[in-house]
């Protein structure tokens, strides 16, 4: 193989590292987005038996947002295999035990249950906050766009700027709010 062909091959099968910020993102909708990068579905050379998947680093998994009352109503089932070994853990309970677990399970179940799934999962790196090892961060060359923009919360805006926001009505000073 000539150097030219080697370069072509090397570029075609390049393994790219992506980063995804999970702040205020729905883990179940994000899972379908991240899955594509992990499996290499976005590449024209994709084939189930072809090793063309990319690495994805998910940061701020602690800050994920669940729809509606899913924190209280979503249940994670586990069975130890022994009699009476079944447990049902609520989403908020699981999240407080391990903040990476919900998004990890979401991505795992977004993929088909093939033999490749566990190897594909090894290319996923989840961090509860934005403390990513420097060596790993140096590999990153692409950022996956978030599905929803992170809303700007009122209490995060400093008081001076908050005062500048135009107001429709001004309550009288003696107005009883509650």
């Amino acid at each position: 193989m000539s150097l030219l062909r080697k370069g072509q091959q090397w570029g075609t099968f390049a393994c790219v590292w992506h980063i995804f910020d999970a702040t205020w993102q729905d883990p179940f909708k994000s899972a379908h987005l991240i899955k594509k990068y992990l499996m290499g579905l976005h590449k024209p050379i994709y084939h189930p038996l072809n090793q063309c998947g990319d690495h994805v680093i998910v940061i701020n998994s602690k800050e994920i947002a669940l729809r509606g009352d899913h924190w209280q109503k979503r249940v994670y089932f586990h069975h130890t295999g022994y009699h009476g070994g079944a447990t049902w853990t609520l989403a908020w309970e699981l999240h407080s035990k391990d903040p990476t677990m919900i998004i990890k399970k979401a991505i795992y179940s977004a993929m088909d249950g093939t033999l490749q799934r566990r190897f594909t999962m090894q290319r996923l790196h989840i961090f509860p906050d934005d403390n990513v090892p420097k060596e790993m961060l140096e590999n990153v060359s692409n950022q996956i766009k978030q599905l929803r923009p992170v809303p700007n919360r009122l209490y995060e805006i400093p008081q001076e700027e908050r005062d500048k926001i135009p107001r429709l009505i001004q309550y009288p000073s003696d107005y009883q709010l509650k």
Binding site: H55, E138, S141
Partner: peptide, 12 residues
Amino acid sequence: IGQAGKNTILSV
């Protein structure tokens, strides 16, 4: 103009 996986053996 581009690079990927700088600290891995598959660096491009």
